[in-house]
């Protein structure tokens, strides 16, 4: 235990840097996923069958094949075709973005469809253009419904980042294994690693709760700060985690 703590103190710098790598991959992956989720989610509601078809195919493809396989494909197979992604970290960010973007697209689509029909009709009655209707009326309401499932996806993304250690990136898991090799304390090293991931997940959840409070306050539905520290709710339908084939709602 003593040697473990000494070693932990000695490698604090490395571990700090590794946490930053993990957080960086999570945040960049999430940003890419968010952008793709909105693009694909909106295209999947298009009037045109061809556009819808293309969006659906992309969504189902990335939901139907495993993230692990997608990452390894980008890292090992893509260079064979002549495209070398410049860094392993970027490779992972792209894989995370594509995979979680596809899951997120279903969240976006479902949340937009869940906005009551009267809101759409009201916007039409006010003579708003399609763009205004989306930006001023529909999205601010749909956004609130998207945040809890986005939070679940964000934590899943965070939990997928140990994949980085398999493609030579010195992320948190990699440093945890270094710590284990240096101290020989297997149980303590891995327990430490799990606890750090748990704390990171909780910090991300707090931030998402805050985001939800802000979004609600903007629509005058504020519940104040009460909900800020609650834990993430699970998705009781499993839709955000599992199956493809387009949700209902």
């Amino acid at each position: 235990m003593g040697t473990f703590l000494t070693q932990l103190g000695d490698s604090a710098g490395n571990i700090g840097a590794a946490i930053l790598v993990t957080v960086e991959a999570t945040v960049l992956g999430a940003i890419l996923a968010l952008v793709l989720a909105f693009i694909l989610g909106l295209l999947a509601r298009s009037r045109f069958l061809v556009v819808r078809g293309i969006a659906r195919t992309i969504i189902e493809f990335f939901r139907g094949t495993s993230l692990y396989v997608q990452l390894f494909w980008l890292y090992f197979a893509l260079p064979v075709l002549g495209f070398q992604i410049s860094s392993a970290l970027l490779c992972a960010v792209i894989a995370f973005g594509l995979n979680f973007g596809a899951y997120g697209a279903e969240v976006v689509r479902g949340a937009i469809n869940a906005v009551p029909k009267a809101q759409w009709e009201g916007a039409v009655a006010l003579n708003m253009t399609g763009f205004q209707r989306m930006r001023l009326v529909i999205l601010p309401q749909a956004w609130i419904g998207m945040i809890p499932p986005f939070n679940n996806l964000l934590i899943q993304l965070l939990k997928s980042t140990p994949l980085l250690s398999l493609i030579t990136v010195a992320d948190l898991t990699f440093e945890g294994q270094q710590l284990r090799a240096a101290t020989g304390q297997t149980a303590l090293s891995y327990l430490f690693l799990l606890v750090v991931y748990f704390i990171l997940a909780y910090i991300f959840t707090l931030l998402m709760n805050a985001l939800e409070s802000v979004a609600k306050a903007r629509l005058g539905r504020g519940g104040g700060l009460r909900g800020l520290f609650r834990l993430r709710e699970a998705d009781p339908t499993g839709r955000s985690a599992g199956a493809g084939a387009g949700g209902g709602a």
């Binding site: 493809f61 139907g64 094949t65 390894f72 197979a77 599992g242 199956a243 084939a245």
Partner: peptide
């Protein structure tokens, strides 16, 4: 040979999981 193996692995995942997800739906 990475291209063939990982493309095939991805295809097998898709072939297995997509119909199952239709059943769940």
């Amino acid at each position: 040979r990475y291209l063939e193996v990982f493309t095939l692995a991805a295809a097998i995942f898709l072939i297995a999981s997509y119909p199952t997800s239709l059943l769940v739906r």
